[in-house]
Every structure is written in structure tokens, then in C-alpha cells.
Design a protein around this nucleic acid. Structure first.
Lengths: 215, 215
DNA sequence: GAATTTTATATGTGATCACAAAAAAAAATT
DNA sequence: AATTTTTTTTTGTGATCACATATAAAATTC
């Protein structure tokens, strides 16, 4: 029997995908963690089919690792891969920020300031997944203005690959977040200084570089 | 019954994925073409299951479009999306080329020259899918030296999204390929001039921009 | 004859099953 | 006690089925 949410066209495999993705994105799964189709299926109270489809999807996004025998786990990044992903963040995010800048009017900057305040609060209170969520929301809100859906979705797969590693690097390095680059980013946005903006986005991403831990 | 290739650990869904991907990549499917699970299953003489998994995978790579009701088709690009993909090619390919350059020794350049000759032949003989294949091989061979697997795989999904549109733009614009930028790229590689190399890669990708046709 | 309704077919989704192969657990051996 | 072998359990894959719904075809109405 096909189970659909009432009065909605959402599909089970898509719901499972979103839940699983968010668990990875907000740091509820650590690198190396092992998952099983049947385990996930019973956790999300469904059959294995929708889980299979969402696992296949997350795997092709680099968010999950499949062993040669198909065993599912959260990837552990070596430093080469980590640096590559950081470099990708820098390239794509500076591109998106510069493209968004001309369309970043007062209303948007106000919203960014609000999100930024929220993020600073979560940094102080050491709430990792809320901090990560607010940080991503800040960047995402800005980049959405670039109106470059393909780039944004690629960036999101990059985030997805970095998240578990950064999340657990964070637990032991909260002090790294003491100074908040976002304030300077907002200033550059107000001044419409794209040169500065590029450099600052690059710098902001650089902070993450120090969160790398070997597992 | 599970059907595996003898003495090999290749899986059916992976084989189906590769075949379907190559059909898209080498231009055997045009934008708008409609596919069905059962149709593909019988074409590849398998059941729908492996096809479902590979279609889901190609869809998440942007190579296939799924309608709200799940109907499968080859995406048609509007000019915004096309330009975004071209921009992505430029950003990622210049990055990879520059990173590959220090490791591009004589043996590699010799191989690139060989591939380039092949490509020029297929351009003259107007064999579109062979031309596309040789062109991709040229770029891929160079970029492999950058040893950046994540970037390369992202680039490949970008190619996958552009392929069908470019392929059928090509049929009516062979003349655009008269002058071959690859020769200059090879010169820059020999001179180890990364400044020049960036510009030339950018230029080479630009040629594709003119192959955009509305369907 | 064109537009609308009805019927029939095709298609994607989710559930379930069998099976091979990989892990894990248990038993036997050294 | 540690290692090897055997047995059991777990797990992913591929096949098949039922079903809802979207699309196509046929019939009906105006």
C-alpha cells in the first residue's frame, strides 16, 4: 500500500531522504558510524524500499559511504579530501557571494544580522547543531540571492560532506569561533565592496580548516 | 536470483548506471526525450529494481529530470541554467588545470597531443559523439593530474548536465570548432605559464557557449 | 467536427520475498 | 588463553506484486 501524507504529494523516499540528510547535516551522526537499511527503515517506520532510494541518493552526493559489499557508513575524511572540500567551499562561496551582492538590499542584510545574532548566541552556549544550523542559514540566505540554483545545490553537497567532520571538530575547539567574521562580511555587503567580500568569505571558510580532526 | 558478472564484483544497478550515463554523455539522448523504468529494464534485460536505483542516482546528479508524477526525461536547459553550468565549468576547470600543471610532464603532454589529434579528426569528419568523447578525454586526462577526485566528480556531473544540449547544438554549428584552443593550452602547459593556462581554459569553454540552442 | 467525458493502458512507488555474501557469534582446536 | 574453524545471524541486492495515479485512447455529447 502506498503511504502518502494526506493532501500532499510528498513521497516516502523523499521524506526519509530529508530526515537522514538533516541528521548528517546537523551533526547527529559521526564519521565512521554504521547504518543499515532495515535499521533506518524501522527507525522511520517504513519498508526498506524508500530507504534504499534515499541512501543511494545520499551516497551519490558523497554524504554516505558504501563499502564494496554495500555496507553503509558515514565517511571519514582524510586531510586531502578535507582540504579539497574546503577549497571548493571557497571557490563556490566567493562566486555566489559576489553574484548576490548587487541584489543584497537592506531587508536582506537585516535578516542576515538577525541570523548572525542567533548564531553568536549558540556559539556562546556551545550548542553545536544549533550553531551549525544558524551558520549555514546565514550563508544560504545570502547565496540564495545569487539565483544560481545549480551552484547552490552543489555547495550543499559540499557542506553535507564536511558536516560530520566539522561537527566533531567543533566540540573540542569552540574557542576558534571567538571572533565572528560575519560582522565584517555584513560591513562589506553594506559598502558593496566585492573585493573585500571575496577575501572575507575566504577567511570565514578558513576558520573551518582548523576544525579538522583525524578519527 | 542475483545476477552478477562472473568473477567480478560489479553490480547490475551500477552497470545500468554506466550504460545510461554514457548514453547521455555521448549524446544518444536528446533534451526532452522520455524514458520509462520498464522500457529501460527490458532494454538492459533486467528488472526494474536496478534501473530505479540508477535513475535515482542520475537524477540526483542533474542528468535526468523527474516530473512531479515521477516521469523520467532528459532535461531541457534554459539559458540561465546553461550559463550557470558554463560558469561552473570555467571555475572548476581553471582550478583543476592550474593544479595539474606542475605535475604535467612530457609523457602526459604527449598523450594529450595524441588525444587532441584524434579530436581534430572527429571534428573534421563530423562525428559528434566521437568528437565529444575525445574532447572530454583531453580535459579529463589533464585534470586527473590535479589529484582532486571530489572536484573532478563534480565537474563530471556538470558535463553530464550540459552534454545533451551541447550535442545537438553541435550538429548545426560544426564551423564553430574550426580553430582548436587545445593547441594553445598545450603550449601554455609546456611553458608552465599558469596565468595563460587559466585564460585559455576559460576561452576553450567559452566556445561551448555558442552551442546553446533553444528547443 | 471539436470538446468533453469515460474507459483503458502505462507507469512510478512501496512492500515483500529469496538469496548470496559478509559479519558476528559460537564451538573446536591448538 | 589464543587462534582457527564452523555455525548462525545480519545485511544488501534483485525480482515480483499490488496499487494509485498519470497518460493515452475511445466513446459520447454538443
Amino acid at each position: 500500500m502506498i503511504v502518502r501524507k494526506k493532501d500532499s504529494n510528498s513521497l516516502v523516499h523523499d521524506e526519509v531522504y530529508k530526515k537522514l540528510r538533516d541528521n548528517i547535516l546537523y551533526g547527529f551522526l559521526r564519521p565512521g558510524d554504521v547504518l543499515t537499511l532495515r535499521g533506518l527503515a524501522s527507525e522511520f517506520s517504513t519498508s526498506v524500499m524508500p530507504v534504499r532510494e534515499s541512501v543511494r541518493r545520499l551516497w551519490s552526493e558523497g554524504a554516505l559511504k558504501l563499502s564494496v559489499s554495500g555496507r553503509i557508513s558515514i565517511p571519514t575524511l582524510n586531510s586531502d579530501k578535507f582540504n579539497e572540500l574546503i577549497r571548493l567551499r571557497k571557490i563556490i562561496e566567493t562566486e555566489l557571494a559576489v553574484k548576490a551582492m548587487p541584489r543584497a538590499h537592506k531587508a536582506l542584510i537585516d535578516r542576515l544580522e538577525l541570523i548572525n545574532g542567533k548564531m553568536e548566541f549558540f556559539a556562546k552556549s556551545r550548542e553545536a547543531s544549533l550553531y551549525i544550523g544558524a551558520n549555514m542559514e546565514f550563508h544560504r540566505t545570502l547565496y540564495l540571492r545569487a539565483q544560481s540554483p545549480v551552484m547552490l545545490s552543489i555547495l550543499e553537497t559540499v557542506w553535507l560532506q564536511l558536516s560530520p567532520t566539522i561537527r566533531f571538530g567543533l566540540s573540542e575547539n569552540w574557542n576558534l569561533l571567538d571572533k565572528n567574521e560575519h560582522d565584517y562580511i555584513l560591513k562589506a555587503l553594506k559598502k558593496k565592496d566585492s573585493e573585500d567580500l571575496s577575501i572575507l568569505i575566504d577567511k570565514d571558510v578558513s576558520i573551518c580548516e582548523n576544525l579538522f580532526l583525524l578519527f
